[in-house]
């Protein structure tokens, strides 16, 4: 299985964001910024989780999605599950 990197996550987040009127600034350190403050609502986070599942084949439960409040939490979950 290929590893899931920060770059992969950035790519997915960009594609879920509004590039026209509200591009996400992923140049700064955004990993610990809550999704809400990055202007991702709960559906957008679910969409991110769905895309991550499709890309790396790791199953993410609904409960786990609910706990993914920051980008760092997504990376932590994926890396933990990939190893296990």
């Amino acid at each position: 299985m290929s590893t899931f990197t920060l770059e992969n996550l950035k790519e997915i987040m960009q594609s879920c964001a509004d590039q026209d009127s509200n591009p996400v600034d992923l140049s700064r350190n955004f990993l610990d910024v809550p999704f809400k403050e990055l202007d991702f609502d709960s559906l957008a986070v679910l969409e991110i989780a769905t895309r991550v599942q499709q890309e790396i084949g790791v199953r993410i439960s609904d409960d786990a999605v609910a706990e993914m409040t920051t980008p760092q939490a997504v990376l932590d979950y994926v890396n933990r599950e990939s190893v296990a």
Binding site: L43, A44, L46, E47, A49, T50, Q53, Q54, R59
Partner: peptide, 10 residues
């Protein structure tokens, strides 16, 4: 099911 987009919800 894991391939269904989240926005199907609305």
């Amino acid at each position: 099911p894991e391939h269904v987009g989240a926005y199907m919800a609305v």
